[in-house]
């Protein structure tokens, strides 16, 4: 009888331990993407980058992102929130890292954002692509521009004919490749990947974890841009 009780106690204890461990790991923000984490660095922000926030700040947050990546889309509300809270103190930059191996529209959407940038509406298109991610990601790369991106360009007041031409231009393709190259050099293998002051951070699993990392960078006297 005692052995039976021991079996039940051990089993229930094991289940409780698993639930507690998983819950604690997630709630403390340590679960998920940290297992393969390597604190690599990326080149400094230049005028070739797309920047918002305080461009003269000593603290920079760089995101390597893919417009078709659901996780990048899920992070966008946090980024917007960070912009509101730290926009006057932190420089935010976005670099293209299209995971074309798994996302068919990743490359063309990066080119669309860059093409909008040539008409001064990079961030507007950037935000719109993420907002409407669920709408356009099912389309094929051959039709996604005419079906969706042209409409977005029009809604932003862009010259659509020029936008279409720029999407396929060598300069735009080269810009995306340049971003991809710096990401590859830094061994970026997932999106979004974030860098604070050019050093990679584990993907924060909550807004509080994000602000903690930025606050630490702001407080650091050795912060480099």
């Amino acid at each position: 009888m005692q052995r039976k009780q021991e079996v039940w106690v051990v089993a229930i204890f094991a289940v409780v331990v698993v639930v507690a461990a998983i819950g604690a790991a997630f709630l403390s923000g340590n679960a998920g993407s940290t297992s393969n984490f390597k604190a690599t660095t990326v080149p400094a922000v230049t005028s070739a980058d797309h920047i918002r926030g305080n461009a003269s700040s000593t603290v920079s947050l760089i995101e390597y992102g893919d417009f078709e990546c659901p996780a990048c889309g899920a992070y966008q509300p946090l980024i917007q929130q960070l912009l509101q809270q730290y926009g006057d103190r932190v420089e935010f930059a976005f670099r293209n890292f299209p995971l074309y191996q798994i996302h068919p529209d990743a490359m063309i959407s990066a080119q669309a954002a860059e093409a909008a940038g040539l008409q001064g509406k990079y961030w507007e298109m950037h935000d719109l692509l993420y907002q409407k991610q669920n709408e356009w990601t099912a389309a094929s790369p051959d039709t996604v521009v005419s079906k969706y991106f042209d409409g977005y360009a029009q809604s932003l007041g862009l010259n659509v004919a020029r936008f279409d031409a720029d999407i396929q231009s060598a300069a735009v393709k080269q810009k995306v490749q340049d971003d991809l190259g710096t990401g590859n050099a830094a061994q970026v293998d997932h999106t979004p990947t974030f860098f604070i002051n050019l050093t990679q951070i584990p993907n924060p699993t909550s807004y509080a974890a994000f602000t903690q990392a930025i606050d630490a960078a702001l407080a650091s006297s050795t912060a480099v841009k």
Binding site: G23, G32, C69, C72, D189, H190
Partner: peptide, 11 residues
Amino acid sequence: YLALPLPCSIL
């Protein structure tokens, strides 16, 4: 329920 999405990965 508790975390942001797993990052999109090449792997």
